[in-house]
Design a protein around this nucleic acid. Structure first.
Lengths: 111, 111
DNA sequence: TTTACATATTCCGATATGGGTATCTATTGT
DNA sequence: ACAATAGATACCCATATCGGAATATGTAAA
């Protein structure tokens, strides 16, 4: 077996930095492909392909209007990712708290 | 260019489902490799390789003790991912609110 | 010092990727 | 009908991947 397909999962789709840029650029604001091409300075075929991947995993939605196709990110599809990372939130909060505490102790030594 | 290396980024490292399992299994609880192998029913070389990737991007920390190596997840390395997805939180909240509202309107029609 | 154990590394093969370039389709304007 | 425009698709290539099997390293026990 090889690496999992980029289209197998929101996680895999989002691993590609350009796709993250696209999602950020389209907040939930609907935009035609051409605008993405210009704004992010990517080749048009590249953008089309990235959008294809994002669409297959439900991360973007598309609406046709004549020869234009309007894309917007489907934020709900990002939530599972967010939920997964939230599993670890308590841990890094502890870590950061400890770091802060040590820093304060060190500062107090100087007094 | 090909697909970005799995070791190029926490995002790419985490795209692989087994690596996510490993991170979840080790909360911040320190465990030797062998325990991961047994708990997740993976081959030992596979686990070692996954741990190598996770280590390279800082998602796990390692401590040597004799012939054992203890791994634990470094939760702080997951925070950037969490922060990125949080960017979209406001959007899915809106979406879910709309869905709920429509459902309630529909329910009220029946009265 | 030989043996057993814990983990890491290497080699292989099949596969999907992303960039680039060219081309195809569909819709609009003249 | 024809040209122009928006977007998708097809093709090629270099590369990294994961699994599997075998082997290597390093530590501890006999």
């Amino acid at each position: 077996m090889a690496r999992a397909a980029t289209t197998s999962d929101a996680c895999n789709a989002v691993a590609e930095p350009r796709r993250r840029e696209i999602l950020s650029y389209l907040g939930t604001h609907e935009r035609p492909v051409g605008e993405i091409v210009i704004a992010l300075k990517l080749d048009q075929p590249s953008v089309s392909k990235h959008l294809g991947v994002l669409r297959k995993v439900g991360l973007v939605r598309m609406r046709c209007d004549g020869r234009h196709k309007y894309y917007r990110t489907n934020a709900a599809a990002i939530k599972p990712l967010h939920d997964w990372s939230t599993e670890f939130e308590k841990f890094w909060q502890h870590q950061l708290a400890r770091v802060k505490q040590r820093a304060e102790e060190k500062a107090n030594q100087g007094k």
